[in-house]
């Protein structure tokens, strides 16, 4: 038997500085959301520009927090609520920020939904136990990196899709509201939602495939019917049904928007609640 390592690096100075940087990022995201909301409500282009700058600026301390923690822990953000939510929110905001630069007008409106959801995720992560978890040997594989990265991209895409679906419902159901006039046209919101669901669906597919290949490499079988595996397949089918419904039966408008919200709820259940079921191999990553 070899000697165990006795080094304890939980809440070491780098970890506390990472937390401070993450809080700074949260404040900047709150500021960015307020700026975008002011623009949406009062049509102030300057506020919108500041909103974008704050979002882009917040990505730096947020990213730095993740890197510092990564270096301190000696492993990527794969385990425990704190680091999973920190990294997931960073990827969500980074993807949104890049897309927002491409579709500025739609991005301005969507920012008031996506940014609050992202900083909420970040804040929940910050309130979770920040102690560094030791990486079990099963989580040392290149397939883990692929599996986790694609999953985070998929979840972030679905966050943007649900934001567009929520705005669609607001604009369609409450046209008398002041902000409804400033939201993108309904067909645009519908298109954005569909595109991001498609993007997320594809990345979810790759996540499942990478996980199955990894399981085969590690344990000699692709699929073990672990609760998360089952729920992940359910989520994938949910979005698959949405996409096929749109293609075959021309599902549009409110029906499609509600379905995106339902599918997103299932994905949240899969990502954040199912890991708490007893006996899940994936419990390590979020408990």
């Amino acid at each position: 038997m070899t000697m165990p390592l006795q080094t304890s690096i939980s809440l070491a100075p780098p970890v506390t500085s990472a937390i401070a940087l993450a809080w700074l990022a949260t404040l900047l995201y709150v500021g960015a959301t307020i700026c975008h909301a002011i623009h949406l409500l009062f049509n102030k282009p300057a506020a919108q520009r500041w909103g974008q700058r704050l979002t882009g600026g917040a990505l730096f301390p947020h990213g730095a927090a993740i890197i510092i923690r990564w270096l301190a822990a000696g492993h990527g953000p794969y385990m425990a609520k704190h680091e999973v939510l920190l990294s997931m929110s960073w990827i969500a905001v980074a993807i949104f920020y890049l897309w927002q630069r491409r579709e500025e007008r739609a991005g301005q409106a969507l920012a008031v939904v996506v940014l609050p959801l992202a900083f909420l995720m970040l804040a929940v992560g910050l309130f979770a136990d920040p102690a560094i978890r030791r990486q079990p040997p099963s989580l040392r594989s290149i397939w883990l990196v692929i599996h986790v990265l694609f999953n985070k991209i998929a979840a972030s895409s679905l966050l943007i899709a649900v934001g567009a679906a929520a705005l669609y419902l607001i604009k369609d159901n409450k046209p008398q509201w002041r902000i409804a006039h400033r939201l993108p046209a309904l067909p645009d919101l519908d298109r954005i939602s569909r595109q991001w669901v498609g993007f997320g669906f594809l990345f979810w597919t790759i996540t499942i495939a990478a996980g199955a290949i990894w399981a085969n490499e590690a344990w000699g079988r692709y699929w073990g019917w672990d609760p998360i595996e089952t729920w992940s397949l359910i989520t994938w089918l949910c979005f698959g049904l949405y996409l096929h419904g749109r293609r075959f039966f021309a599902w549009r408008g409110q029906k499609a928007a509600w379905l995106v919200i339902v599918c997103f709820t299932v994905s949240i259940l899969t990502l954040f609640l199912v890991p708490f079921l007893p006996g899940s191999l994936h419990s390590e990553y979020f408990q």
């Binding site: 491409r102 007008r105 739609a106 604009k171 409804a180 006039h181 400033r182 993108p184 993007f199």
Partner: peptide, 19 residues
Amino acid sequence: LLYGPRLRPRRNPPSCAPS
């Protein structure tokens, strides 16, 4: 193939006019 081409900037940004 499905999403790579879409990363290029759009020529016609979507309208923000009320539908």
